[in-house]
């Protein structure tokens, strides 16, 4: 089944200049985002998952730039966009973003209603009473009780979960095609996390959205994602459907990531932790970026960067282990149990 590609990234390279040195943050990522899907990008802190997605709405920090590659969206190449004016066609209107921390992502001096209407004024030319009604409608949509009263309140009068709903309402106010959720539940109470995830899921169905989740919480992923892209050191090392990545992971980094799920821990034993630190992106990386931390690394992992090996039409991984000449290495035993866990514990993790 050929699905419609809504956003297509080709060989994207992003660099940052930091204290006079150049950091290669995104190292040649290619990715097709399908219309209506929900893609999760997972990886540890500093793997470049946020930086990667910020390229889609032109919010890279000032010291960063797209070195090469293209981001195609509706016959436009977003990688070429420089000016605010060009981005104004995309930001909010086509691609919107929900940030991590709802406590700080609202302007403390403006009412909730004003902040939602700001988006209307910009993108839909909606003003006055009509805008107000629409804002109240959206507040109701994201599950805020008594929206007419809440409309006139300030952010400090809302709890964290409610604020995240407001942030989502603001993102939805522009009626975007793609919604990027940058760790939408990290700053929230565990009990609220599931609610917010369900809310995003409902909105996705209702408005036919394409969603990208950026997260390091595989529990979140298991719940919401159709596809998973695993990022490590500025590169996607494995990508596949949710089931493929969970049940049939191929890349040693994915193994390590899954092994460190707290739900897999055995009482009385230490949790699995990945040894070492991610590579320094100031220096060029030789071979497989994960090789240094990989106990099963092959000699070639230190010499040549592995290409993508296709496991199935939807599943590919960048590891020499998939080369026919490679010795057979089994994934760690611990992640064999994942099937039981995913149905139970991880569900609302």
């Amino acid at each position: 089944m050929e699905r419609e590609v809504i956003l297509s990234v080709k060989d994207l390279n992003v660099k940052f200049s930091l204290r006079g040195k150049v950091l290669h943050a995104i190292r040649g990522i290619s990715l097709d985002l399908y219309k209506g899907e929900s893609l999760a990008i997972v990886g540890e802190s500093g793997s470049g998952k946020s930086v990667f997605c910020k390229n889609f709405i032109g919010l890279l920090d000032k010291n960063g730039w797209v070195d090469s590659g293209t981001i195609e969206y509706k016959d436009m190449d977003l990688a070429k966009f420089k000016k605010d004016k060009e981005w104004s066609k995309i930001r909010g209107k086509e691609i919107a973003m929900v940030m991590q921390d709802p406590m700080t992502s609202l302007n403390p001096l403006k009412t909730i209603g004003w902040q939602i209407e700001e988006a209307f004024r910009l993108h839909q030319d909606l003003k006055g009473e009509a805008a107000k009604n629409k804002a109240i409608e959206i507040l109701a949509d994201v599950g805020i009780p008594d929206p007419a009263r809440r409309y006139g309140q300030y952010p400090h009068e809302f709890s964290g979960g409610m604020r995240q709903r407001v942030v989502i309402a603001i993102a939805m106010a522009c009626n975007p095609r793609i919604l990027i959720c940058d760790e939408p539940t990290t700053a929230l109470d565990v009990t609220i996390q599931a609610q917010i995830l369900n809310l995003i899921k409902d909105l996705k169905d209702k408005y036919d959205l394409t969603t990208i989740y950026i997260t390091h919480d595989l529990g979140v992923v298991a719940n919401v994602a159709d596809r998973i892209a695993v990022m490590y050191a500025g590169d996607i090392v494995e990508i596949g459907t949710c089931d493929e990545v969970f049940y049939n992971p191929k890349h040693p980094y994915t193994w390590a990531l899954l092994s460190s799920l707290p739900q897999l821990g055995v009482k009385g034993e230490d949790l699995y932790a990945i040894k070492g630190t991610p590579p320094n992106l100031f220096h060029p990386i030789r071979g497989d970026a994960f090789a240094a931390r990989n106990p099963q690394a092959l000699k070639i992992d230190f010499e040549h960067r592995p290409p993508y090996f296709e496991v199935s039409p939807t599943h590919k991984a960048r590891t020499w282990l998939l080369d026919p000449r490679a010795p057979k290495v089994d994934p760690p035993a611990i992640i064999q149990n994942i099937r039981n866990i995913k149905r139970g514990g991880v569900e609302n993790g």
Binding site: I90, G92, M97, D101, S105, E118, A119
Partner: peptide
């Protein structure tokens, strides 16, 4: 440097 400025940018508010 605050987050709400980033959100405003992401919302498409001109500079």
């Amino acid at each position: 440097n605050k987050d709400y400025i980033k959100l405003a940018r992401a919302k498409g508010v001109p500079n």
